[in-house]
């Protein structure tokens, strides 16, 4: 992993010079005042580079990060998006686990519901988001909640499917074992199915977390939004400010990694028996 990172860094510099050189040459030809004389030298000085030079990126990162809690700073907006994503993920977990229990508990429920669940996931979230925001707005639901709901809308499905598989995962012999104890259905659920489903829950939560993050960012872009990474992306994309877009992207990626890392930590706390186990 470290080797790959080192390679990417080593390749980044020539790649950056190469993709920016054309634009730099055009600027020079137009007589723009860049404070440099050759296309290669100017490639690291462009105002809106395709790939930013590390120094440029560092400067923008610093400039856009302070003061951290100003409504225009990237960290502040990252927190907004993080909040929407986490709330969305929580709603998705409750909904997903509830659905999984119902799906496993009743064949009839599964037959009736599953096609609709799958259909719900074929609706592109980008088309759904504005409509949902308008509809929810009519009921006075505004601000971050509609975005959290949109995040939950695409995140509940992997949770439901994963947990349902987990609840069905116990070995038939383990089920027979509980039968020989005359265990009630409730006991079989609590002592066998639920704990067996926990590893599945965390695997699907990690998938759901990235889905929820996409959901909240898309929701911010496609609805009238006053804060969040999506809103900043939309603004800076209209202004063609590539440096700002790169910074926002970095924060977004960081947020995604942080979410998955927190889930990984939680997983180790909740399923301690798997620590050190070769999988």
């Amino acid at each position: 992993m470290i080797i790959v990172a080192a390679l990417a860094l080593a390749l980044y510099w020539p790649l950056m010079l190469w993709v920016n050189a054309g634009a730099a040459q055009r600027s020079l030809d137009n007589g723009a005042e860049l404070g440099c004389t050759t296309a290669i030298a100017c490639a690291t000085q462009l105002r809106n580079p395709v790939l930013p030079a590390p120094a440029q990126l560092g400067n923008s990162l610093r400039a856009m990060s302070v003061p951290p809690l100003a409504p225009t700073s990237v960290p502040y907006n990252t927190l907004i998006t993080a909040g929407e994503t986490v709330v969305g993920l929580l709603i998705a977990s409750v909904l997903g686990i509830g659905l999984a229990v119902a799906l496993v508990g009743s064949r009839a429920f599964e037959r009736v519901t599953l096609p609709w669940l799958i259909a719900s996931q074929t609706v592109p979230v980008i088309a759904l988001a504005p409509m949902l925001a308008v509809v929810l707005g009519q009921y006075g639901v505004q601000g971050w909640l509609p975005k959290a709901l949109i995040a939950a809308y695409i995140a509940f499905f992997p949770v439901a499917v994963g947990v349902a598989a987990g609840l069905r995962s116990p070995d038939p012999m383990q089920e027979d074992l509980l039968t020989t104890y005359r265990a009630s259905g409730w006991q079989t659920f609590w002592k066998l199915r639920l704990p067996a489903s926990l590893p599945f829950l965390f695997t699907s939560l990690k998938v759901a977390a990235t889905a929820a993050l996409i959901g909240s960012i898309v929701a911010e872009i496609s609805t009238i939004s006053f804060s969040g990474l999506g809103k900043m992306l939309a603004e800076n994309s209209r202004a063609s400010d590539t440096l700002a877009l790169w910074v926002i992207m970095l924060y977004g990626a960081g947020l995604g990694i942080a979410l998955v890392a927190v889930l990984g930590l939680l997983e180790r706390l909740v399923t301690p028996w798997r620590a050190g186990q070769s999988r």
């Binding site: 012999m173 383990q174 104890y181 002592k191 028996w273």
Partner: peptide
């Protein structure tokens, strides 16, 4: 009446329970 104990082809232990808690399982259920 829980008149018999059954030992299966595979141990069928619950992987999230320690050895002690696996032995406790029937006592918990009962």
């Amino acid at each position: 009446e829980r008149a018999y104990g059954y030992v299966f082809q595979s141990p069928a232990l619950l992987e999230w329970r320690t050895v002690l808690n696996n032995v406790l399982l029937p006592l918990d259920v009962m």
